[in-house]
Amino acid sequence: MKLGYARVSTTDQKAAMQVEALMDAGVAKDKIFVDEMSGAKAARERPKMVELLNYAREGDEIYCWRIDRLGRSLVDVVTTVQDITDRGISLYSIMDGVDPSTAHGRLQLGLFATLAEYERELINERVRAGVMAAKARGVKFGKQPPKPDTVQTKIRVVRQLLSEGAEVKAAAEAVGWSRATLYRYLKQFGPETVPETAVETRKPRSRSIYAAKTATAPRGTDSAGRSRNRN
């Protein structure tokens, strides 16, 4: 089945010309999908393009007036073309003479793919250069540190919980912190100390009974007081 696609901006009145060219190529008028919107939107953001891609089946033929109607950039165009051809659908561009059934048409599609890859690399290079320039100006990337006012507000909440007998871990989790984070912020922002009741203390490890007996047994005897000397 022959299907057609046309795109015009809201200020462009050339839809009739594109539709006529598609009909001359043998596409029925009711099988032509027309998007009236800016070319700034990607193919997958265009309602009629999405409808066309969902409607098309393997063995169908999609005609467009010009290849640039298929996307907002060369990369977008090539991605759309790849999506269409991978599904076993033939693509024809009337004005560009793109015909995948000919060697020349396949060469054109290959050149489009090469140029799209080149454009991707240029975009990546510009992004990297922009990041380096921003870092040189002191711009910080990644997660931003919390505001001091927010930290101090949470500290007051934590102190209140601790004064009411809450455990350190529970108080920290109540404000979204770990125990280590809580202690770090208390040290950094809080002039007061953590209530003594909230400080975790460890009981001294008790010595074993054997060790205690050995420590008190006279030299030359075992833990029971028996002589170690053999007759």
Rank of each mutant, 00 (worst) to 15 (best):
L3G: 12
G4F: 10
Y5M: 03
V8S: 09
A15R: 07
A15E: 13
M23R: 15
M23N: 05
A25W: 11
K29C: 06
D30T: 07
F33C: 05
D35T: 02
G39D: 07
R44H: 14
R44L: 04
E45G: 09
E45R: 02
P47M: 00
V50L: 11
E61H: 11
I62E: 04
I67Y: 01
D68W: 01
R69L: 01
L70M: 10
G71I: 03
R72V: 00
D76V: 01
T79Q: 10
T80P: 09
T80S: 08
V81S: 00
V81L: 02
Q82Y: 01
S90I: 02
S90F: 03
Y92F: 15
S93R: 08
M95F: 06
D96I: 00
G97H: 05
V98A: 10
D99F: 01
D99G: 12
R106N: 09
L109Q: 12
L111W: 08
L111C: 06
E117A: 14
E121I: 02
I123P: 12
N124Q: 13
V127H: 14
R128S: 11
M132H: 13
M132E: 15
A133T: 05
K135Y: 02
G138R: 03
V139H: 06
F141G: 00
P145K: 10
P146F: 05
P146R: 14
P148D: 10
D149V: 07
Q152S: 11
Q152V: 07
T153G: 15
R159S: 11
E164W: 11
G165R: 04
E167T: 13
V168H: 07
K169H: 11
A172S: 06
V175L: 08
R179F: 07
A180N: 09
L186H: 12
Q188G: 02
P191V: 01
P191Q: 05
T193I: 02
E196Y: 03
E196L: 10
T197S: 15
T201Q: 11
R202W: 14
R207S: 05
R207I: 04
R207V: 02
Y210N: 05
A212H: 05
A212V: 07
K213E: 13
T214D: 11
T214E: 13
G220M: 02
T221E: 09
A224S: 13
G225N: 05
R228N: 10
R230P: 06
N231I: 05
